[in-house]
């Protein structure tokens, strides 16, 4: 198997490796293929992002890697250990935190709950308490340390959960949408703490799922874009953005009127188009093969009787790369 990203690495240097990993869910009514033939290699010390729309299979991937779910076929290794056959040894080396999770016992105080979980890893009590206080302090939660969990805000709770993931010093930490529903400053705290924690020991690895483009762009060393159970692209955020470098990206603002998205998409030379509504105006993002396509776009817009209130050409973002690869924006529902 070719290891293009880490030419010098052997298996033990890879934090995560999957080979044709596939997972099918069976429910009474139907079969859902949540992951299909996923090949992934994440090097030790990487902060690796898994980016994808709802239902893409991100959580399924994480749950297989943390030994909660068996693959239907294919293989997966974490820290060099097979998640199917060597799961017992693996468990002391991993951690998982999911955004919005409610695990634990509400009757306990923050510090007590964290201590409880540390014991399931055999940590020395005194060392665990010290570590917990240190991490709580870093995340600005010191004041809440003696608060009962039922009284926490959801943001505080999410930060507490992150402390739980960090305190056992896992070799590979899995974060499933760790900043979902957090306000801007709390999300920033979480991201910077993850980064800092990784710097403490450069062999630590983090796999993070998100559907925030900007988070993936700013935070991750490398990103895989997942859609409908398949990896459709993989690379550094910069490389992914470069894949749309040849395109002309314009943001077009239109006052309300008849829908034009489909008409825009039908124009020759329009690679991808997406729209979101903001403050009563429609903000279109268009990917054009070259400048020559723009007049045709304007003709179409005017033909539909829509009034242009703004037009700018801008630098490509990860979102643009995503739209180009997946054919729709992250928030747009599948047709």
């Amino acid at each position: 198997m070719a290891r293009t990203h880490h030419p010098s690495s052997d298996t033990s240097r890879l934090a995560v490796e999957t080979r044709r990993l596939t997972r099918v869910y069976k429910t009474r009514r139907e079969l859902t293929t949540a992951l299909q033939d996923v090949d992934l290699e994440v090097g030790e010390g990487e902060l690796f992002g898994v980016l994808g729309p709802n239902g893409a299979g991100k959580t399924t991937l994480i749950k297989i890697l943390v030994t909660l779910l068996l693959p239907t076929s294919g293989q997966a290794f974490v820290d060099g250990l097979d998640v199917v056959t060597d799961y017992k040894r693996l468990r002391s080396r991993i951690g998982m935190v999911s955004g919005g999770e409610q695990a634990g016992y509400g009757i306990l105080k923050v510090r007590e709950q964290l201590w409880m979980f540390s014991q399931f890893y055999g940590m020395d009590s005194t060392a665990a308490r010290k570590r917990i206080d240190e991490l709580l302090e870093r995340l600005g939660l010191s004041d809440a340390a003696n608060k009962q969990i039922t009284g926490l805000s959801s943001g505080m709770r999410q930060k507490m959960n992150l402390v739980r993931g960090l305190m056992t010093d896992p070799r590979v930490l899995f974060l499933d949408e760790p900043t979902v529903a957090l306000d801007v400053s709390a999300a920033r705290d979480v991201r910077s703490e993850v980064r800092r924690w990784m710097r403490e020991d450069p062999t630590r690895t983090v796999i993070l799922t998100t559907h925030y483009m900007q988070e993936a762009d700013e935070l991750c060393d490398r990103v895989a874009i997942v859609n409908r159970g398949r990896i459709v692209a993989e690379g550094t955020p910069r490389a992914l953005k470069q894949s749309v470098d040849d395109d002309v990206i314009v943001d077009l603002q239109l006052d309300p009127g008849t829908p034009v998205l489909d008409r825009l998409r039908a124009i020759e030379g329009v690679g991808a188009a997406s729209v979101r509504e903001e403050d009563g105006v429609d903000r279109f993002s268009l990917m054009l093969a070259d400048d020559g396509v723009l007049p045709r776009v304007m003709t179409t817009v005017e033909g539909a009787g829509r009034h242009v209130s703004g037009l700018v050409r801008r630098q490509p973002t990860l979102e643009d790369a995503f739209v180009k690869l997946v054919g729709r924006s992250m928030t747009e529902e599948e047709a």
């Binding site: 943390v66 030994t67 909660l68 017992k88 468990r91 002391s92 991993i94 951690g95 998982m96 999911s98 999770e101 409610q102 695990a103 634990g104 016992y105 979980f117 399931f120 890893y121 055999g122």
Partner: peptide, 18 residues
């Protein structure tokens, strides 16, 4: 129901201990 079971499972502890 609240996700605690997941955390027991992925930790190196055993159900017997829990």
């Amino acid at each position: 129901g609240n996700g605690t079971l997941e955390l027991y499972v992925i930790s190196p502890t055993t159900f017997e201990g829990v």
